[in-house]
Structures are given as C-alpha cells and as structure tokens.
C-alpha cells in the first residue's frame, strides 16, 4: 500500500473491470472503467485538477483567487473538492433542477452555488457563466467546454490507463458532454491503433429542459470543434431514457453501482457489441450511483423514473 500525502493524489488510476457477462455477443468482451472511484466521485475530478493546475502554471490562478465555472454537477463537484484542498474560492453556475445530492455535495465542500434557470438547461448555465465572467474579469473562468486542459487530462491519463490495462481494445464508447473524454481518450487510442473505433453516446437531454428558443441558440463545445471531433468519432448514437434506466439496472445486477449516464453508455456498448463480429469494447462509467439515489432510478416503477427524467438534468 502507498501512503498518499493528500487527497488530490488519489485522482485517476481508476480500475478497469471486465463486465463481459453483460455483452449481448459472446465474441465481444466489454470492459468498464469505473470513474466513480475518483475521490470526488466522478471522471470530472481529472479535468478539474488539470484545469486548476494549468491555470496555476500559467499564472492566472493564485492564492486568494476566485474560480468560476458552469456545471450541471460533476465538474463543479470535482472543482469544489480541489478548490477546498487548495484554498481557493469557487462559484458554480448550475441549473436549479439538478438532482438534490449534487447541490449537497457542492455545499459540503464549501462552493458558492449560483442558480441558473432550470428551463434553460446546461446551455443556460453556460450562457450565464459567460456573462458573469465578462462582468467580473477578476474571476478565473476555467470554462471546461473550451479549455484544452480538459481533453489533455484524458489524453495523458484516462487513455493511457485504458491502453495499459487492456491494449487489445478495439472500440471505445463514452458519453458526449463537453466531448473531453471522447476527444482525449479517442485520440490517444487511435494514436496507438488507428483501427480503434470511437462511439459517442448522447444521453437523453430532457426535452423540457433543453432551453432553446431557436436552433441558433444551440451549442457545440469549442474543444469539439478545435479538435475536429466530427472526424474523430466513428459513430454517434442517442439512447432513450427508458433504455438508459433498463441498462443501469442490469449494471447493478452484476454489483456495479454506477450513475445514470452509465446506463446510457452501457446501452451504447451493447449496441456496439451486437454490430461487430468480435472485439473488445472499453466504456467509461463516468460516476457512481450515490448522487442519484433520490431519483429512485433503481427501485421506483420504471415508467415513473422515465417520466421524471424529462424535467430533471441527470447528466
């Protein structure tokens, strides 16, 4: 055993677990990277640490600084843990209709929460944070959607770890949020083996909370555009809330307690396994189930859970 000098050293090096018993194709193995094992409970600890240390290195962030970031949950929670450990103040702009546990986790680590209208979803939080950043130039605006440290955390961390533990990987499947995981891990794995295929899974965004008045209000993260995300991906698939919850429960049935987006990603991995004759599919389970207990996702009637998903942001 190693003795660690502080909690931040626990970020990364998460376990990769064989879950082939859930594969619909006996010739296709599926392995899952359990990012819920990070100390802040999600994959976003990685980018939070990279963005903060990057800002420290280039002199933008120093003692007494206040950090600002829009987040529907996990990035904010990762930043809150690190900001507390490093003694920075933190403002998180978050849609008011995220699950209750997210707010509580931010409060536990002393972050200041700025509510954005729930009806405007994640896009609304991004717009509000951009406005606050403009009005308060003294804030250090990390901006995960446009910060190269986000995909770099995955190119230097998550990707090499998957390749180290499972060099025979042929397909990589992950959720598309900021696109940081897909860009970073996808480009790393393709640099090792150009035949690796990268599948983006779009978890369902509740239609009532997409926050768009017109199509021109749409949003594509700058890191996706700058890294030619369209060319990197080989497939992009949407998964319905019902299918996500069904797969979330199957994941739990083999003893893995993952967050709701992992249900969507697993549904995508199963479709991927069905579409190929043989191979090894690596998936990222972005977080654990703890922050979603109040949603009843594992125990309530599935129709109820699916109905609720229309007005709550789970991802």
């Amino acid at each position: 055993m190693t003795l660690y000098s502080n909690v931040l050293e626990l970020i990364g090096n998460t376990p990769l677990v064989d879950i082939s018993q859930l594969s619909p194709n006996p010739s296709v193995r599926i392995v899952a990277k359990l990012e819920g094992q990070n100390p802040g409970g999600s994959v976003k600890d990685r980018i939070a640490l990279y963005m903060i240390e990057d800002a420290e290195k280039n002199g933008k962030l120093s003692s007494g600084s206040t950090i600002l970031e829009p987040s529907s949950g996990n990035t904010g929670i990762g930043l809150a843990m690190i900001a507390r450990a490093k003694n920075y103040s933190l403002n998180i702009v978050m849609p008011e209709n995220v699950s209750r546990e997210r707010r509580q986790a931010l409060e536990a680590w002393g972050a200041n929460i700025i509510d954005s209208p729930g009806s405007q979803g994640s896009n609304g939080a991004v717009r509000m944070a951009q406005r606050i950043a403009k009005e308060n130039p003294e804030y250090v605006f990390l901006y995960q959607y446009g910060n190269p440290a986000n995909p770099r955390a995955h190119f230097e961390g998550t990707g090499p770890e998957i390749y180290r533990d499972c060099p025979e990987v042929t397909h990589f499947v992950a959720g598309l949020g900021t696109s940081g995981t897909l860009i970073g891990v996808g480009s790393f794995l393709k640099s090792k083996n150009p035949d690796v295929k990268v599948w983006a899974i779009e978890p369902p965004s509740g239609e009532m909370v997409d926050g768009l008045r017109s199509l021109d209000d749409g949003y594509i993260p700058p890191i996706f555009v700058e890294n030619n995300g369209s060319d990197l991906l080989d497939r992009r698939t949407i998964i319905s809330p019902r299918e996500s919850i069904e797969w979330l429960r199957k994941i739990a049935s083999i003893g893995i307690f993952a967050g709701i987006s992992s249900g969507a990603v697993m549904a995508g991995a199963a479709r991927c396994a069905e579409s190929i004759s043989e191979g090894v599919v690596a998936v990222v389970f972005a977080d654990g189930g703890w922050k979603y207990l109040s949603t009843g996702a594992w125990s309530d009637d599935i129709d109820l859970v699916v109905e609720r998903a229309k007005s709550i942001i789970y991802f």
Binding site: S71, T178, S205, G211, G218, Y219
Partner: peptide, 10 residues
Amino acid sequence: ITILPAVAGG
C-alpha cells in the same frame, strides 16, 4: 428519423 438541437452537457 429524429431531429435534435445541439445542447451542452457537463
């Protein structure tokens, strides 16, 4: 056929 607007996650 499903048409969806582009939205952010994260």
